[in-house]
Design a protein around this nucleic acid. Structure first.
Lengths: 196, 196
DNA sequence: CTAGGGTGTTACCGGTCTGTAACTTCCAGC
DNA sequence: GCTGGAAGTTACAGACCGGTAACACCCTAG
């Protein structure tokens, strides 16, 4: 078991953290609540005292993931204060780094692939959080002075999403190795036509 | 139940077809063998006479999917014989059409998201089939006289893959609506630098 | 008509799943 | 030291899972 995040903290936090890790590694339907609580060093009753159901736990995990991703954006601003173009390049580098360090794709995309029920509570939060991320990337492109900010942001976003999928299907030595080149080329290309 | 593909044909074919449909709609772990056989108008014993295990059935479904996708490529050649560039544009149109008619992503990508065991038999065939598809797209780009054929093919491939994921997470009205524009723009751009 | 293979039926195995009940233990605040 | 709430423990319910055994059936090839 490499899933033993059992530091001493409040049981709810340990459950949430452990669940995030295990859902990410093994998929949502690939992990039972028993396995989560055991790895978290607690028990099932405690889980159900803090979360209404497994579905509720899933939703909370997705929100926690989004919060962590949001914190990543703040580091871009901190490292390149005011320089939006540099932040965009930082995003590209960070994205590429994730492709090489994590063989699993985006948790939200994976969750959407697994949870097919149209009215599953996770589906609406996935949509909501993905849309928020898109807004953030669009804003970055726009503030970087790029004309067709939406189009560039969407293109970069789809490229990254596709690269994560590609890593999961053919591995990190496949088409995803070209991600940085693709992304940087796109940014250059869009900057060229930036008739603001 | 909309999963009733119960035309009269040999049980093995019905099982395979039904399983493909149900795996696609509900995910692999979201469908049990009982549900498949019932929808296929047969029973579990017959399934296990034709397939070694559920995993074996999964693999056969993926291969059948790939075969169907392969047939699609043949229609491009049939509709635009010899004209590789026209075939490439046909691929773009076909890809875009799939984004609007099918809210679920690529079966292989979804399977890779669900089947996390590193040595799952499906993983190697997913990789193998995806690599074959890549070869086909690279070949098309190259025969269309595009200089950096591999890079264009990989870029288009990642874009499409990402668009399918996007449809699954935020819906068909999200960034995927721009797929054709992105793809066509890329082809134009790569054709411009086609220093053959 | 008959033989035999493909198919259908029923029942079952052992395991796992989410979720709950009833009870005990621990520990911090007063 | 006492108390109250949070956490742990055990057992269980009810459903579903993949997979198998034993047997009855039907339909076609000879």
């Amino acid at each position: 078991m490499t899933d033993g995040v059992v530091e001493r903290s409040r049981p709810r936090d340990r459950i949430l953290e452990t669940a995030r890790d295990m859902f990410h590694k093994h998929g949502i339907k690939g992990v039972g609540v028993d396995a989560i609580t055991e790895a978290a060093g607690t028990n099932k009753m405690t889980l159900y005292r803090h979360f209404e159901s497994k579905d509720d736990l899933i939703v909370e995990c997705l929100r926690a993931n989004a919060a962590k991703a949001g914190a990543m954006w703040d580091t871009f601003e901190a490292e390149h204060p005011g320089d939006k173009l540099a932040q965009l390049h930082a995003w590209v580098r960070k994205a590429a780094a994730m492709l090489n360090t994590d063989g699993r794709g985006c948790d939200m995309a994976n969750a959407a692939a697994e949870l097919t029920e149209p009215d599953h509570p996770a589906r609406r939060v996935i949509k909501e959080l993905k849309e928020a991320q898109r807004e953030r990337l669009v804003g970055l492109c726009r503030d970087a002075g790029i004309g067709q900010a939406e189009l560039l942001a969407d293109t970069l976003s789809l490229l990254f999403e596709g690269a994560r999928v590609s890593v999961q299907t053919v591995g990190a030595e496949g088409p995803s190795t070209q991600f940085v080149r693709m992304a940087e080329g796109l940014i250059v290309s869009f900057r060229g036509t930036a008739a603001g």
